[in-house]
Structures are given as C-alpha cells and as structure tokens.
C-alpha cells in the first residue's frame, strides 16, 4: 500500500475533522471579533466582546469581577474532581494491575468499571436525587442513627453534589490510562526492588508512581478539560444555581449573542490549552499512545 492509497483511505476521516472540528474552531475565533444585535451577527473586527468579558476585572478597588469569579469556581471544581478521581482511579488501577492475578478476572473487573461509561450521564446524575435529597436515603439514614438532628440541605444541589457527580462520572478517565501504564511496568523491576530490601510502600513511591506518570498525566488532562468546559453536570447537580464558563457560553448562545459566546469560548480554549501544555511538559505524550 503506497502513500497515496493511505491518504485516500483516511480521506473521509480527515474530511470529518476538517468540517466539524478545525473549521468550526477557526470560525469561532473569527466570529469572536464580530459585532451583533438582537437578531443578527455582523462581520466586523472589534474587541468589544473581549472588553465586555473583562469589564471591571482589572479595577482592583472593586470586587472580583464575574468572569474571574466564574473561573475561580471552575478551577475549584477542577482541583477537587482531579484530586479525588486521581486517588480513586490510581487505587483501582493498582488493584487491577497488581492484585488481580488471573487475566479473566482482570478483564471482568475492568469491564465492570467501564460499563457505566456506556450509559447515559444524565440518568446517572438524576439517580443521585433519591439518595442525596432532603428526604433522601442518606438523610433518613443519618437521622435514624442520630448523627444529625435535622435533614441536611447541602447534600444535593450544592458544590458537594457537583464534585460527587464528577467523581462518579469521570474516575474511569483516570483508571484506563493509569492501568495501561501499570501493565507496561516490567515486573522484574519490582522483584529486584523487593530483593534489594524495599518494602511495599517504597516500591509504590519510588517505582510504580514514577513509571505511571504518563498515565496519570493523560488521565488528568481528560478530567480537567472535561470539567473546565462543563455546563451540564454543574447545571443539573448544582440545581441550576452555580456558575460555570460552559454555562455562560450556553446562555449567550440561547440569546443568539454568538460573537460574545465565541469570545468566551476562545478564552476558555486558550486557558485549557495552557493547562494541557503545562501538563505535557511532564511527559512526551506521543510516546505513550
């Protein structure tokens, strides 16, 4: 098979990503400099959409502006979701890779972790309502054991429920790449360390974690980017009360303020790329795939 044949084989795939990925992103950047009114968008080259986003942001005598506040809240969700998915994902991957000896059992347990990924995210969020709600299972359990005196409101439609949902939905994004890295670790290195007198904890810190770094970074990129742009989970689990950048974009779109939404999208994109760029400083991502 020669070069040209390969190109034609990949052409339809190429076309999809040109038409539905690259061109839309370029258009988003272009339109972010356009003008608009109530019913139409007008080709132009203005910076007002950006100026509007950072309105009052650099006036230090006033409170933190809405944009910065929203980004801070998004970073907060990112950090907590990243931390907990990493801890849980690493533990699960470690268990699957090093404690489960039979291949059949390994595949079965791995599939058990994966199956929910192929079901509806919305339903998985909704299914927390009967557990976390005011009259939910957790509240009635805690009431009956006397740990709390009255039903707690903060279980649902709160920061807590949002982070919980992120962990619930996206721990798999950590498990898969970390598990993949762990499977590549040469078992004889671990044997050697053990023979040289290292204990389990030392092996974990000095061998397994460093060798899993690529998996950890890839998983982290997935979780952080998905949380950065989220508007659905924060919307549903936050009871439509919490702000996020994704939500600002969505609301602006529903008012047909497309250039404003595009400007927000460009800034979100730049920040996301920046975060990814910092993370890939730790590894060479192309070697890992």
């Amino acid at each position: 098979m020669n070069n040209r044949k390969s190109f034609f084989l990949a052409a339809p795939f190429y076309l999809v990503f040109l038409c539905f990925f690259l061109i839309p992103l370029i258009l988003t950047v272009i339109v972010s400099f356009w003008d608009y009114n109530e019913y139409s968008i007008i080709p132009d080259f203005i910076f007002e959409n950006y100026a509007y986003i950072f309105n009052n942001c650099f006036d230090y005598s006033k409170d933190v502006c809405v944009t910065f506040k929203t980004y801070l809240s998004t970073f907060y969700f990112c950090f907590l979701s990243w931390l907990f998915t990493l801890l849980a994902g690493f533990t699960i991957a470690y268990f699957l890779a090093f404690h489960v000896k039979s291949l059949g059992l390994q595949i079965t347990l791995f599939l058990i972790c994966t199956i929910p990924f192929w079901t509806s995210n919305v339903i998985r969020m909704v299914s927390w309502i009967p557990l976390l709600g005011r009259n939910g299972l957790f509240n009635s359990f805690l009431l009956s054991t006397g740990i709390i005196d009255e039903p707690q409101e903060w279980f649902l439609y709160s920061h807590f429920s949002v982070v919980l949902a992120f962990i619930h939905l996206y721990t798999l994004f950590m498990i898969v790449p970390i598990f993949n890295s762990m499977l590549r670790i040469d078992k004889s290195i671990i044997e050697a360390a053990y023979d040289a007198g290292a204990n389990g904890f030392q092996i974990l810190i000095n061998i397994i974690i460093p060798l899993c770094k690529p998996g950890i970074v890839i998983g982290s990129i997935f979780v952080i980017t998905v949380v950065m742009g989220d508007f659905i989970t924060i919307g549903i689990m936050g009871g439509q009360q919490l702000a996020s950048i994704g939500k600002i974009i969505q609301v602006e779109m529903s008012y047909l303020q497309l250039p404003a939404a595009a400007a927000n999208a460009v800034i979100l994109l730049i920040i996301t790329i920046f975060i990814i760029w910092i993370m890939t400083k730790f590894i060479d991502i192309r070697k890992e795939l």
């Binding site: 990503f17 539905f20 988003t28 742009g229 779109m253 994109l269 996301t272 990814i276």
Partner: peptide, 24 residues
Amino acid sequence: FLFFLTISSLIVPSIILSLGVALE
C-alpha cells in the same frame, strides 16, 4: 496533523465544539 486533530477533538471542551459547529 490528522492524529493531532483527532486527539485534540477528544479533549477540547464540548461546548466550544458545539458552538463552533452551530456557528458554521
């Protein structure tokens, strides 16, 4: 380049992509 596009598509925030296609 195609490989780069494919991987980027996986991690670009979905709302941005949705907006871009809608604009297009």
